[in-house]
């Protein structure tokens, strides 16, 4: 038996973050909070979502439990939830998840967790460069780049952090120097990524949210979003594009 009450915005964003990659996912109700992770069907990206126990208004978990959720459906329903509204999650038996908000009670059948794709381990990656910036700025850069290209280059050197996109006839460079960045360790790195994924990732972020980027050379990138006043941590790991010689 699980009973949890949480701010609408937090759970909405958490589910939205998962939907960006997969349609079914395992939710682990653990002692320290709610955790979920998954790899997308093309084996290119991974999402890791954590809602710490403290972010819940009520969090009673009699024993740790894993449920399989059709996140596509849940995401659709949660769209109607307002930001400040409270949402109650309830799992009484193996088969149903109850979501209550306002005067609506929504029940959805659970999926057998073993039927969902194997859950990945969280990879250990050596990523030299670390950049911390406002997620809203990053979102703007990605959305602009999406207009002209299907891939972007993330680059760092002593002068700051660059996002570069090249179309057939046009080019966008987004640059933030050390002064504009919240934190920057001045390491050099460069990798290329698909915008198709990035533009899904940034949907959960707004200005004021903090984004930490860990970048390497032709290596995956880790994007760690702290959203909803730090109540929710979403981490994306994205494999780089294979650059044609």
């Amino acid at each position: 038996m699980i009973n949890a009450i949480i701010n609408g915005e937090v759970i909405k964003t958490a589910v939205k973050a998962i939907v960006a990659l997969v349609s079914e996912a395992r939710f682990h109700f653990k002692e320290e909070g709610l955790h979920s992770r998954a790899v997308d069907p093309a084996n290119v990206a991974m999402v890791i979502v954590d809602i710490p126990r403290e972010s819940f208004d009520v969090y009673t978990v009699e024993e740790e439990k894993t449920i399989g959720v059709d996140v596509n459906r849940v995401n659709d329903i949660l769209k109607t939830v307002k930001k400040k509204e409270l949402v109650e999650l309830k799992v009484e038996d193996e088969s149903m998840l109850k979501i209550k908000f306002g005067s609506v009670e929504y029940s959805v059948a659970l999926i057998d967790p073993s039927a969902i794709r194997k859950e990945p381990k969280i990879p250990e990656l050596e990523l030299p460069a670390k950049v911390v910036l406002d997620a809203g700025e990053f979102k703007k850069a990605i959305q602009a780049a999406d207009k002209i290209a299907d891939h972007v280059v993330f680059r760092t050197d002593e002068t700051g952090f660059y996002i570069e996109a090249k179309g057939d006839i046009d080019r966008i460079v987004f640059h933030m120097g050390e002064m504009e960045l919240i934190e920057f360790n001045r390491e050099k790195a460069r990798s290329m990524f698909s915008i198709e994924y990035l533009k899904e990732f940034v949907k959960i972020a707004g200005s004021g949210d903090i984004l930490t980027i860990h970048l390497g050379d032709d290596y995956p990138v880790r994007l760690v979003f702290d959203v909803a006043d730090g109540k929710l941590k979403v981490e994306y790991i994205l494999a780089p594009r294979i650059e044609a010689e």
């Binding site: 790899v39 290119v44 290596y219």
Partner: peptide
């Protein structure tokens, strides 16, 4: 969508490992 992304990107395996 899936093939289009899968063939032009590197891989993160089901185990969560990065494959180059």
């Amino acid at each position: 969508r899936i093939v289009g992304e899968a063939v032009f990107n590197e891989t993160i395996s089901d185990e969560g490992e990065f494959l180059s």
